[in-house]
């Protein structure tokens, strides 16, 4: 049980929720965020957007019942969190492109902060369907952040310039990006999104088919090598 510090609307159904407390978590990991009570019944897997001394933040889009209920919460309200879960993005070195589509941009705030602090050179690419206030958050983080609205963010990325590409967003976006990465033999990691129930690897509702057999998105992922996910 934790207290919400703020839950700020950022236009186009995007919200930034900050929750007070000491939280752990690595880039690309997620928390199971639960509205208190038994309805909605299931927690929602939400990527870590940022962690600081004050608390943990989640950038989320109001898309269904769970995130709809989340969007009504206000400062001082209580919410349940379990985590961090999932493997997160790998610790790599070199030049890295971080490519997010829509709400798939969320994990790249912490990822950018962490990797640049470690000395990596990162370029941030954010694609949105409409203008919103999350754009500013990413621009403040990276002055050179490339933002595409109502276009194809993948057009702006040249994998040849990078040692690694990390992506998160609609599957079609990650797939298109992977075609480009394959041509230049750039190593590409994707963060997959699936409906989840337990979040800990026990229930098998979030199974992701890979070239190495069925994997649990919540426990073995959500980050996979793109070539293992897009193998057919």
């Amino acid at each position: 049980m934790a207290i919400i510090i703020y839950n700020q609307p950022l236009k186009d159904d995007l919200f930034l929720m900050k929750i007070k407390g000491e939280f752990k978590g690595k880039m690309g990991q997620f928390y199971m965020v639960k509205i208190r009570g038994l309805d909605p019944l299931l927690p929602r897997p939400i990527s870590i957007y940022d962690i600081d001394e004050e608390g943990i933040s989640f950038l989320y889009r109001k898309i269904g019942r769970g995130t709809g209920e989340m969007s009504y919460l206000r400062e001082g309200d209580l919410i349940d969190l379990e985590g961090p879960y999932g493997n997160g993005f790998p610790e790599v070195e070199g030049k890295i492109a971080l490519v997010g589509g829509g709400i798939g941009t969320a994990p790249f705030y912490l990822t950018y902060k962490y990797l640049t602090k470690k000395g990596c050179s990162c370029d941030l690419f954010c694609g949105f369907r409409k203008h919103n206030d999350a754009e500013n958050l990413f621009k403040q983080l990276d002055g050179n952040c490339k933002i595409s609205v109502d276009g194809f963010i993948t057009d702006l990325v040249n994998p040849e310039e990078y040692d690694f590409v990390f992506s998160c967003g609609p599957e079609i976006m990650m797939k298109v990006l992977d075609e480009k990465c394959k041509k230049t033999s750039t190593i590409h990691y994707v963060s997959m999104e699936k409906r989840m129930a337990c979040g800990v690897g026990a229930c098998l509702v979030c199974t992701c088919k890979t070239s190495k057999g069925n994997k649990r998105t919540c426990k073995d992922g959500p980050v996979f090598l793109a070539e293992e996910v897009f193998y057919e």
């Binding site: 019944l41 509702v205 979030c206 199974t207 069925n214």
Partner: peptide
């Protein structure tokens, strides 16, 4: 068993429906 393709979980009012397919 590899289990079922497609969506495997759907939340309902005060419940959930699953179609894991015995993976």
């Amino acid at each position: 068993k590899a289990g079922n393709d497609g969506i495997r979980v759907w939340e309902t009012k005060a419940g959930m429906i699953n179609s894991v397919g015995l993976e």
